[in-house]
């Protein structure tokens, strides 16, 4: 039965239902009291990049090939290859800077890296006390271990480990017996 004013009363009943329900039903009180409670992030969640090393920081996977620097849309990565006394390039970076005030967390650097060296972190508490130098992350800050990578992204890390393991085995087989690759295996493409 419709009478003038019914719409207003219906609205009030909805509000009362939400008011009473907020004491009893869990999905009518959606506040998460940060910083005491935190929402657990899903695995794919991404914020800023970091570099992966296996076992020791010296054994970083990055070879300073500069592909991520070229592909980064806002150009926030700066890499300088390490060279020895004679000028021959050693395959790891001397300088690897990411400016996190410029980085737009697009994940393109992760997709194009051929060595699975740079991956996305999910740490969002990156407040600093300054705006310029403090927001530039250098190589020591960026290096994090493979165990850390397993902790934040278990499924992806195990897949990457399996892939690298398979590649290492194939390379070992090729070195031991320099025979042409067996039919059926596809050559690696980048």
């Amino acid at each position: 039965m419709k009478f003038p004013g019914k719409g207003l009363l219906d609205g009030v009943f909805v509000t009362i239902r939400n008011f009473v329900g907020s004491y009893f039903e869990k999905d009518r009180l959606v506040t998460v009291q940060y910083p005491e409670e935190r929402v657990s992030l899903p695995e794919n969640s991404r914020t800023f990049p970091f570099l992966v090393y296996d076992d020791e920081p010296d054994k970083m996977r990055c070879t300073a090939c500069k592909i991520c620097e070229a592909e980064c849309p806002p150009q926030c990565i700066y890499i300088v290859m390490d060279r020895d006394e004679k000028g021959k390039p050693l395959q790891h970076p001397k300088v690897f800077d990411i400016d996190i005030s410029v980085c737009m967390q697009c994940q393109i650097c992760v997709e194009v890296c051929p060595f699975d060296a740079i991956k996305m972190d999910n740490d969002y508490e990156k407040s600093r006390y300054g705006r310029f130098d403090e927001l530039m992350e250098h190589l020591p800050d960026l290096l994090k271990s493979n165990e850390y990578y397993h902790k934040i992204k278990p499924i992806e890390a195990t897949a990457v480990d399996a892939k690298l393991q398979a590649a290492a085995e194939r390379k070992a087989k090729k070195l031991v017996s320099p025979a042409p690759p067996a039919p059926g295996t596809t050559p690696e493409t980048d």
Binding site: N18, S22, Y23, L29, V30, T31
Partner: peptide
Amino acid sequence: KTLGRIQNRL
């Protein structure tokens, strides 16, 4: 507090 509870928040 009441407005908060109506709007599903504390």
